[in-house]
Computed example of a mutant assay.
Amino acid sequence: MTLTRAGFHEQHAQGAEAEAQRLFAQKPVLQGAWLNWVASQVYMLRPAEYASMVRRELQRLQDSSES
């Protein structure tokens, strides 16, 4: 049985959030090298839908850290 988009999102939301937080935590450590590093980390995530979820969560973390 194939998962619906909503089902996939629901099943993987916590994992994507945790992964984004793990990646975002490296920003102060890597500083200027972080952007290239995090892009390469997200690129390796599979499936693509999961990578997109992590990318959106990273954007949310980035936005909230700037405000």
Rank of each mutant, 00 (worst) to 15 (best):
Q26K: 15
A6S: 12
A33G: 05
E10D: 08
F8M: 02
S40D: 09
T2K: 10
Q31D: 11
E17I: 11
L45F: 01
V54H: 01
L3N: 10
Q11I: 06
V42K: 02
Q41N: 04
H9I: 11
A25K: 09
P28T: 01
A20V: 03
D63M: 11
S67L: 14
V54K: 00
W37T: 01
K27M: 08
E19V: 09
E49S: 10
A33T: 04
Q14I: 09
Q26Y: 13
W37G: 02
Q26H: 12
L3T: 13
V29P: 10
V42A: 02
P28Y: 00
Q41I: 04
A13N: 06
A33F: 10
W34P: 04
L30F: 03
P28N: 00
A16W: 01
D63W: 06
R60N: 12
A25H: 10
F8L: 02
Q62M: 14
Q11F: 06
F24V: 04
S40W: 06
R60P: 11
E57P: 05
M53D: 03
K27I: 06
S67Y: 12
Q21G: 06
E17T: 13
Y50A: 03
L30I: 00
R56N: 15
S64C: 09
H12K: 05
P28Q: 01
H12N: 07
V29R: 12
R22C: 05
Q62I: 13
H9Y: 15
L35E: 12
L61M: 08
G7S: 07
F24Y: 07
K27P: 05
S40M: 09
L23H: 02
A20P: 01
E49G: 08
L45P: 00
A16V: 03
H12D: 03
E57M: 09
Q62R: 14
E49L: 12
Y43V: 09
V38H: 00
Q14S: 07
A33N: 05
N36M: 12
M53V: 02
W34Q: 03
A16R: 00
E57H: 08
K27C: 10
V29W: 10
S52G: 14
W37P: 03
L61T: 06
E19C: 14
L61G: 06
L30R: 02
N36D: 10
S65R: 05
Q41E: 07
Q41H: 05
G7I: 05
G32V: 15
R46N: 11
A13V: 07
S52L: 13
V42E: 02
A18V: 05
K27Q: 09
L58C: 04
M53P: 03
R60F: 14
L61V: 07
A20Q: 01
Y43R: 15
R46F: 15
D63K: 07
Q11N: 08
Q26N: 11
R55A: 10
V54W: 00
A51M: 02
R22S: 08
W37K: 03
Q21F: 13
H9A: 15
W37F: 03
A16S: 02
M44V: 11
A48S: 08
S40V: 06
N36E: 09
W34G: 04
Q14V: 10
Q59L: 14
D63Y: 07
A20R: 00
W34R: 03
E19I: 07
Q21Y: 09
E17M: 12
Q11G: 08
Q59K: 15
V54S: 02
G32M: 11
L61I: 07
S67E: 13
Q31V: 09
T2I: 11
